Simulated scan of single mutants.
Amino acid sequence: MSFPPSKEFQAIPWEKGMRLGPGRRFPDTFLDRLGEIKVKTGSGTVEDPLVLWPLPGPWTSRGHRQSVIMDIVKQTTSDCGLSHAWIASDIHPTCTTGWKDGKRQIDKDDYHVTVRMGSNSRTCNIHGHIYLICEGNDMRRNIVRAMKTSERGIVGGTSPQLLVWGPYDPSWPRAKTPLPEPPYKVKKDSILEFQNKARAEAAAAANASNRKR
Score class of each variant (00 low, 15 high):
S2Y: 12
P4T: 03
P5R: 05
P5M: 14
F9N: 09
Q10Y: 01
I12H: 01
P13W: 05
W14Y: 11
E15G: 01
G17V: 07
L20S: 05
L20C: 03
G21D: 02
P22G: 09
G23A: 07
F26V: 12
P27C: 12
P27T: 04
L31C: 15
L31I: 13
L31D: 11
D32H: 13
R33P: 02
L34C: 10
V39S: 14
T41D: 10
G42D: 04
S43I: 15
G44N: 06
T45S: 12
L50W: 10
L52S: 12
P54W: 00
L55E: 06
P56L: 09
P58A: 12
W59N: 13
Q66K: 09
V68C: 03
I69C: 10
M70D: 03
D71C: 03
I72H: 00
I72M: 02
I72G: 00
Q75D: 14
Q75L: 10
L82M: 14
H84Q: 07
I87W: 07
I87R: 10
A88N: 14
S89C: 15
S89M: 15
D90W: 06
D90K: 03
H92E: 04
H92T: 04
P93H: 08
T94D: 08
C95I: 08
W99D: 14
G102Y: 09
K103M: 10
K103Y: 14
R104E: 15
I106G: 01
K108A: 13
D109I: 00
D109S: 06
D110E: 02
M117A: 11
M117F: 04
G118E: 07
G118N: 09
S119W: 05
S119C: 07
N120W: 04
N120C: 06
N120M: 04
N120I: 04
S121G: 08
S121P: 01
S121K: 12
T123E: 11
N125V: 06
I126E: 02
I126L: 08
I126A: 03
I126P: 01
G128S: 09
G128V: 08
H129V: 03
H129D: 14
H129N: 07
H129P: 07
I130A: 03
I130W: 01
I130F: 02
N137K: 12
N137G: 11
R140Q: 11
R140S: 05
R140V: 10
R141H: 11
N142L: 05
R145F: 00
R145T: 00
A146G: 08
M147F: 02
S150C: 14
S150R: 15
E151T: 02
R152K: 12
G153C: 00
I154D: 00
V155L: 12
G156K: 01
T158W: 00
T158F: 00
P160H: 02
P160K: 01
L163M: 11
L163R: 03
L163F: 07
V164G: 00
G166P: 01
G166C: 06
S171A: 15
S171L: 13
W172G: 03
W172T: 10
P173I: 07
R174H: 04
K176T: 15
P178T: 05
P178Y: 08
P178M: 13
L179F: 06
K187V: 08
S190L: 06
I191M: 07
I191E: 09
R199W: 14
A202K: 13
A202V: 14
A202N: 13
A203D: 10
A206L: 09
N210Y: 05
R213A: 09
